[in-house]
Computed example of a mutant assay.
Amino acid sequence: MLSDSCPQRRRYSGDKVFEGIPAGPDESGLVLAFLDGNDFSAQTRRAFVNDLKKFARWFTEANREPFVVARVTTRDVGDFRDHLRRGKCQAVATVNRALVNVRRFFSWLVEHGHLTANPAVKVKELRRVQLALKGLDRSQVRRLLREIELRQDVRANAIFGLLLFTGCRVGDLVSLEMHDLMISERNGQVVFKQARAASKGPCRCRCWPGGL
C-alpha cells in the first residue's frame, strides 16, 4: 500500500490509469511501475499519464481492440501522431511532447524486458515551422518616419532608413563601419559583414531614397 505522503502516486493507483479505456490486465501496472521507477515531479507524472491515456484511447478506437503494449506497432504510433496534428489540430509542441512521452514509456518497457523492440523509435517528431516575421504596416512606417522628421533626428533617420530600405537585421546594422557604405547623390550600396559567414561573399544591398 502506498504511503499517504505520496498523493501523486495514489492518484494513479490500481487500474485507474486507463479507467474507461479497454486495456490489457497488466497495462496499468506497467505504467505505474514506469512512473514509480523514475523521479518525476507530480506535474511530469500527470503529463505522462495524460499522454499515455490519449494514446491508449486512440488505439482502442482506431484498431477496435483493447490497448495492449505488445500489440502496438510503428504504424500505430505514426498514425497517432498524425491524428493529433491533422485530426485534432493540436500544436506541434503538444504533438511532439505526446510522442516523446510514448517513446520514453516504450523504451522503458524494452529496457525492463517487457518488449523486444520500441515501436516508437522510428517515428520522427514534427518539424517546427518558424513563423514569418511580422513587419510594420504602411501607416505605422509613415508615422515613425514623420516623428523622426519632426524631431529632426538625423541619426534616427539614417538608422531607420537603412532598416526600412534594405531589410537588414539590427545585428547587421550595428556591425557596419563607414567603409561599408557607398553613398552617392541618387542612390547607395551597403555591405553587411555578418552575411559573409553564411555565404561565399559579402551581401550587397542597394538603397534608394523614397517616400511613403
Rank of each mutant, 00 (worst) to 15 (best):
I159V: 15
S184T: 11
A120L: 00
A98N: 07
F48M: 06
G37H: 01
V190E: 09
D180Y: 08
A120W: 02
F192W: 04
I148P: 05
V191Q: 10
T60D: 07
E61I: 02
G167F: 08
E185P: 00
L35N: 09
F106M: 03
P22A: 11
L150I: 09
S199V: 00
V121M: 10
R138N: 04
D39T: 12
F48T: 04
Q194T: 13
E125N: 13
Q8F: 09
R11G: 01
D39M: 01
V102H: 00
V129R: 15
E185K: 09
V49G: 06
V110P: 02
L32E: 15
K88M: 08
R206W: 06
F67A: 02
L131N: 10
G167I: 02
Q43N: 15
V31A: 06
G37W: 00
L32S: 14
F18L: 14
R104P: 08
L164W: 14
A98E: 01
N118Q: 02
E19S: 06
P119I: 02
N101W: 00
R64F: 06
N118P: 00
D26T: 15
R71C: 02
E61A: 12
A62I: 07
E111M: 07
V100P: 00
G188I: 08
F59S: 00
C168N: 06
L32Y: 09
R128K: 12
A33G: 08
F34T: 10
Y12V: 15
C203M: 14
R142H: 06
E149K: 12
R85H: 13
K16R: 14
D180T: 10
K16T: 09
K88V: 10
D180R: 05
G167H: 05
W58N: 08
R151T: 02
G78M: 11
L162H: 07
Q90N: 14
N157A: 15
F59T: 02
L136A: 12
R143Y: 01
I148D: 10
P22N: 06
R64N: 13
A42L: 02
T166V: 07
R196P: 00
R57L: 09
H179Y: 12
L115D: 00
E177Y: 06
V92D: 13
L162R: 01
L109G: 04
F106A: 05
V129F: 11
G188R: 05
P209T: 05
D153C: 04
E19A: 05
H179N: 14
F55Y: 09
N63Y: 07
C205Y: 03
R81K: 14
F48G: 06
L126C: 12
R169H: 06
R9S: 07
E177F: 01
P202N: 11
